[in-house]
Nucleic acid binder design. Structure first.
Lengths: 135, 135
DNA sequence: TTGCTCCTCACGTCACGTGAGGTGGC
DNA sequence: TTGCTCCTCACGTCACGTGAGGTGGC
């Protein structure tokens, strides 16, 4: 039989790095639930740390708090998989956008021009980032 | 001598893809300025499209509207370069986070487990995404 | 004159962050 | 009893989105 240790909210903050104000918000959105209280202080089952890691990963994946609550609280039915597949398309696009932004900024660092907009190399990268439609 | 054409806000929206509500916000933050009005409608110099592309790129680079206004309105003094270098470190980290999120979600798609948290492979990826400190 | 799009202004949203004033346990 | 951290609740912030009611040009 596995022993489930209860851990204090202070320890959750310390070990996860997630600030207490964020934990309060997540609780209001039904993402996390304390198992009880010690006086006023929230106590959690130690599995909360894995759950928090999952929330962080899904948030980086661009899911809203409401979507994450859905994914974690309900099982993983077929339409969840559809939503994940849709998100993945968007994530690959964001990866490309991020790469373009990095390329542009790295050039800006080495550029001798007096301002960003005066740099011809930066200019040519812009159209790549946000395609301007013809007149 | 170069002729500067004026273009209507409707054309700016169409050619850049940026919604009008966003253009209004950017104007209040001194990121863009109309050259004049035709009746009530804002008119812009056609160079606005390049500027909008730069704003989008910098935003994807994680700069706030206030920071972008600074970068574009003032020149590019040395401390701007320092700020860009600092951002670049953060951007490379975000690139890694995004990659980790994509890897996790791609596994979730192929996983047969009834819920995300039940999947052992997903579990092992979590600690990679958000390192949990020891007790 | 009738539509149409744009205008301004106020308010809503999302995911928090920040006090203000109060409580519980060492 | 004194600190300390956590508690709740309200309000602020950032970057917009969304009406509501009004104006100008074809």
């Amino acid at each position: 039989m596995t022993v489930h240790n209860e851990i204090d909210i202070a320890e959750v903050v310390r070990r996860s790095g997630v600030p207490i104000s964020t934990l309060h918000v997540w609780e209001r959105h039904n993402l996390i639930t304390p198992t009880g209280r010690s006086g006023l202080r929230r106590q959690y089952e130690d599995g909360i740390l894995q759950r928090i890691a999952a929330i962080v990963l899904l948030q980086r994946g661009g899911f809203s708090l409401a979507e994450i609550a859905d994914l974690l609280n309900n099982g993983m039915p077929g339409d969840d998989k559809t939503r994940i597949a849709t998100k993945l398309v968007e994530l690959h696009r964001r990866q490309d956008e991020l790469t373009a932004a990095i390329t542009g900024l790295e050039h800006a660092l080495s550029c001798q021009q007096p301002s960003l907009m005066a740099c011809p190399t930066f200019q040519t990268m812009l159209d790549d980032a946000l395609p301007i439609k013809p007149t």
